[in-house]
Amino acid sequence: MAGAAYTIFDTLMGRCGIAWSDGGVLAVQLAESREIDTRRRLLRQCPDARESRPSVEIAAALGGIAATLRGAPHDFSDVQLDLGDLPAFDCRVYEAIRSIPRGQTATHADLAKQAGSSGALDAVDHAVRRNPFALIVPCHRALPVAGDTRGICANGGVITRRRLLAMEGALAAGGPSLFDVLLTAAPRQPER
C-alpha cells in the first residue's frame, strides 16, 4: 500500500479514522473508547499508511461519516473505494450493500443472490464482518435474517448497528430500544 495515508477526525460518536490511497478509501474505523485504540485498529488494516491531511474528496467522505453519526442522511455513492486487495466476491457483496437504501435492510440471502451466488450465506457473513469501509458500505443494513439485528457487523458491534438503524428509521416498532438494551445490561440496585 505505498502512498497510503490516514487521518483521525472528530464525530459525535468520538474520534474516528479513515485511510486512503490514490485509488480511493482503504478503510474507515469507527471510534473506539480511546483515540489510540482507534488509530491502532486503523493502522492494523493499513500498516503502511502515514498521517496526512485529507484531499478534498476524502474530506467530503469524512464529513459524510460525521453527518451520518449525527443522524443526518448522507449519500456515499460517489465515494471511490480502493478495492485492490479484496476478494472479488467481497467486492460484489459490498456493491450490493451500498445499494440498500437508507431506512431499509437486506438479508444475507438477498445479498448472496445479488452477488451471484445464492447459496453463499457464510461467504456473505464473512464479507460483512470484514467490511473495511464502515458507513460508506453500510453493513449495519445487512442482517443475517429479516429483523435480526444481533449479528456483528464490521468494527461496530450490535449496539452501534441498532443505533444506526434506529437513526435511519429501519427498526421495526416494538423491538427493544437502545435504552432497553442498556437497562438490561446495567447492574440492578438491591430493593430496600
Rank of each mutant, 00 (worst) to 15 (best):
L143N: 11
A127C: 06
G116N: 07
E168T: 03
S117W: 14
A115R: 13
A123I: 00
R92L: 08
A146W: 09
V79H: 04
T107Q: 08
R102E: 03
V128A: 06
R162P: 01
S118K: 13
T149P: 00
F76V: 06
L164S: 05
A109Q: 11
T68K: 15
P101G: 06
T105L: 04
L86K: 09
D82V: 03
R162M: 13
S77T: 12
Q104D: 14
D122F: 05
F89Q: 01
A115L: 02
A142W: 12
L69I: 09
T68F: 04
R129V: 13
D148E: 14
Q104Y: 05
D82S: 05
D125T: 14
A66W: 07
G119M: 07
D78L: 08
H108V: 07
D85Q: 10
K113H: 15
L143Q: 06
G71C: 06
A127Q: 04
R92H: 04
E95Q: 12
G156F: 02
G151Y: 01
R161C: 04
L86M: 12
R141L: 10
A106F: 12
G103E: 08
P144R: 15
L86P: 00
V79L: 05
I100P: 10
A146H: 14
K113G: 11
H74I: 01
A142C: 09
T149K: 00
R102D: 07
E95P: 00
V158Y: 14
E95M: 01
L69E: 11
A154V: 09
F89I: 04
C153I: 13
S99C: 09
G157C: 08
G169E: 06
A67N: 04
A96R: 09
L143W: 03
S77H: 10
D85N: 07
A142M: 12
T107D: 02
A127F: 14
A115C: 10
H140F: 14
F133Q: 03
A173N: 03
R98H: 01
L165Y: 05
F89L: 02
V124T: 01
Y94S: 02
D82Y: 02
R163F: 09
H74V: 09
S77V: 03
Q80F: 00
R130P: 01
G84Y: 00
